[in-house]
Design a protein around this nucleic acid. Structure first.
Length: 260
DNA sequence: ATGGTTGTTCCACAA
């Protein structure tokens, strides 16, 4: 079972890239998408279906938006992250699929540091950590994947000094990530690629970042213990980032062996 | 210290 996550930065602008990628022979069984930037009604569900995938979409006009694509139908569990009824940003969807619990996250960016947006980022990550505890307690195979908007360590940034003022690299942001790791969750790519390996997943549109490989690793598939026991491979697919009109993120994937 | 780029929406904002 192959699972991937990809922040497409507008599913309408990336429709052709997405459909081409879903049509490749090694395309994943489950794909988590972020930053759809559209309402569910404008999601290209028919074309995605023709490519072989069911789609569970939580959309929003202009901003955010997440989806779970799957070859087998997914059964929806949650369309929002618990813990704040007033939060209407489309950043979370969770489903039962292929014997797994799968959660797709678009964590808040939080820039600039010290703003209300940074406070929202930390509050959202606190809600995620608390919800992750309930998922962990199921003792089921669980995958939480998406754009975390956190660069976990200095090894995950092209230049720690250049990123020092960014919300993605703040100590509080990294502490929110480590809270999950200390609780027993596995960062799938990093588990198989220990430092000094680099696996950037995002390159800014500005400053020729892609051409110079000035990237960050901020997209990840995080596994509960029984899922991590099945982890067979993980990788970053850099090809879509090299295309004309690319998203600023590229897909990350992991392979889980069949359940014993 | 600023400007560099992309997407969506509206004449900015978010990333």
């Amino acid at each position: 079972m192959r699972i991937a996550t990809w922040n497409v930065n507008s599913v309408r602008a990336r429709r052709r890239h997405l459909l081409d990628w879903l049509g490749r022979p090694d395309a994943p069984d489950i794909v988590l998408l972020q930053e759809l930037k559209t309402e569910e009604a404008a999601f290209p569900a028919m074309e995605v279906r023709a490519a072989g995938y069911h789609a569970l979409v939580v959309g929003q006009k202009g901003y955010n938006g997440v989806a779970i694509l799957s070859r087998a139908p997914a059964v929806e569990r949650l369309r929002a992250l618990p813990g704040d009824e007033a939060d209407n940003q489309a950043r979370y969807v969770e489903a039962e699929c292929g014997g797994l619990i799968v959660a797709c996250v678009y964590c808040p960016n939080g820039n600039p540091v010290g703003s209300a947006k940074f406070a929202y980022k930390l509050a959202w990550m606190d809600r995620l950590a608390r919800h992750a505890e309930t998922l962990f307690a199921t003792e089921r195979p669980v995958v939480i994947g998406g754009d975390w908007n956190i660069c976990p360590t200095a090894e995950d940034a092209w230049d720690e000094k250049a990123m020092a003022a960014d919300a993605l690299c703040q100590p509080e942001s990294r502490a929110a990530w480590r809270r999950l790791i200390w609780a027993g969750w596995t960062d799938s790519w990093r588990a198989l690629n220990p430092p000094p390996a680099r696996g950037y997943t995002y390159w800014d549109y500005q400053g020729g970042a892609w051409a110079q490989d000035h990237g960050l690793r901020i997209d990840a598939l995080v596994l509960s213990p029984v899922a991590a026991e099945r982890l067979a491979a993980a990788g970053v697919d850099r090809a879509p980032r090299a295309l004309d009109g690319a998203s600023d993120h590229t897909p990350v994937w992991c392979e889980l062996d069949d359940a014993a």
